[in-house]
Amino acid sequence: MADQDGPTAAGAPRSTTPRAASAHLPRARHEHLLRQVELHGSVRSARAAAELGVSEVTVRCDIVELERAGLLARVHGGAIALASAGAPQAARLLVGVVVPGTTVHFPDVVRGMESISHAQHARLVLGVSHYRPDVEEKQVARLLALGVDGLLLAPTARGRGEEEIASWITSIPVPTLLLERRFGSMALRGFDSVRTDHAHGAALAVDHFAALGHRRVALAVYDRTPTAPSVRDGHREASRRHALAAAPDVRLPKGEEDPEALEEALHALLDECAATGTTSVLVHTDDHATRLVEAALDRGLDVPRDLAVVAYDDEVAGFAPVPLTAVTPPRRALGREALRTLVERVGETGPRGPARHVELLPTLTVRRSCGPPTPASPR
């Protein structure tokens, strides 16, 4: 059993001495630290030192003692609760993750991070911005207040320019890695980043169409996403490389906000394809591609004989009326790579090393929506 100056269990009797008078007693300090971990899951050395009226060095020494006693886990800048009494390895880093949403694309990215978080000695804390800069900044501030050692961030560009984003991110006092974003700003390019090479993914789709004999590849893109510009770049580059004829290029509305507008846009696309002899189309996203297939079937068209379709993204592509060939981003691999890169950055000592930009390549998942054209198909 620990003596009065040793580590105490979270359930030990509380001292009745006022904090101002007892803060310099190890037992009182230990109780305070354990209580903060019990309530919040973590405690920061700097904040605890200010609350107790002692130096950070004293608090860090207390945390070391409590860790040796198996009552918490020490991390950079403070301590966190043990995941379980029998955990073979305790987390050493608290990592904040801020993504735009939890319904499309990013859930699998976060699952990839989670799959290696134990091996990386990291605990993840998630914040969601809903594509709102004000919410995003509040989420980052909340994570910083929790004492995160590093930040994985997919910044929102809506309503602000790159220089504004760069100025804000530069002010974040912990290592920050940018997720799934392509920026032209030199300031933003100075940050570590891990993203999918979406231009390569679009080029894969065009290459596949060309290999099947299609000479025109239409493009239909939901433009209100950070992915859309790269999809356009990849489609354009691959179409030039294969010397393909001009084909329809349309912008699609979201659909959930105005289903009738999306239906009109899809039927207009089908009209353009028929008028130009276009027999293949790359559609971003896979939800939009599914609806295009439905519209084509309603017209009596055969997919893929009359119209071959490749979806960009692979969330629901396999569940379309005609299962969709799809460009499949490496979401989980991206999450794993991002967390590894950030943990390595946080662990650096001495001068900061050069920024790291990692691009992962998507793959093409071939299904029924993109088969060989028949000799009778128009070109």
Rank of each mutant, 00 (worst) to 15 (best):
L297T: 02
Q4R: 15
H121A: 15
R132K: 09
L212E: 00
L360R: 00
A211S: 10
A46C: 11
G150W: 06
R215F: 00
D287M: 15
L82G: 11
A220I: 00
I169G: 09
H288N: 15
T16F: 08
G101M: 11
H288S: 12
R35I: 02
P373M: 02
F209M: 01
R352N: 06
V283C: 09
G318F: 01
M186Y: 10
R14P: 04
R74Q: 14
V346S: 02
H200M: 05
E56I: 13
E315T: 13
M1I: 11
G147Y: 06
L126C: 04
P362A: 03
P373D: 00
L297D: 11
V97A: 02
P304K: 08
Y312E: 03
V293L: 08
L342K: 03
E114T: 14
A20P: 05
E162C: 10
V109M: 01
H130I: 09
L301I: 00
D313H: 13
T363R: 12
L334C: 11
D149M: 06
H40C: 11
T103L: 12
V206E: 01
T102D: 10
E38G: 14
A320R: 05
H357M: 03
R14Q: 13
P173G: 06
S117L: 09
I165T: 14
T103G: 06
R367Q: 03
P372R: 13
M186C: 06
E257L: 15
R92S: 09
V293A: 07
R29C: 04
A48H: 14
L93F: 15
G347F: 03
V54G: 12
A157P: 05
L72T: 01
E256Q: 15
G41F: 09
A49V: 00
L282H: 12
H284T: 03
E38F: 01
R232E: 15
S369K: 08
E263F: 00
V43K: 02
V206K: 06
L52N: 11
G234M: 01
A211N: 10
G213L: 01
E31M: 10
L307D: 00
A211H: 12
S377Y: 05
F183A: 08
A20S: 13
A317F: 08
E162K: 09
A187D: 14
M113G: 07
L126Q: 09
G335Q: 09
H198Q: 14
E272Q: 15
R224I: 07
A238C: 05
P173K: 11
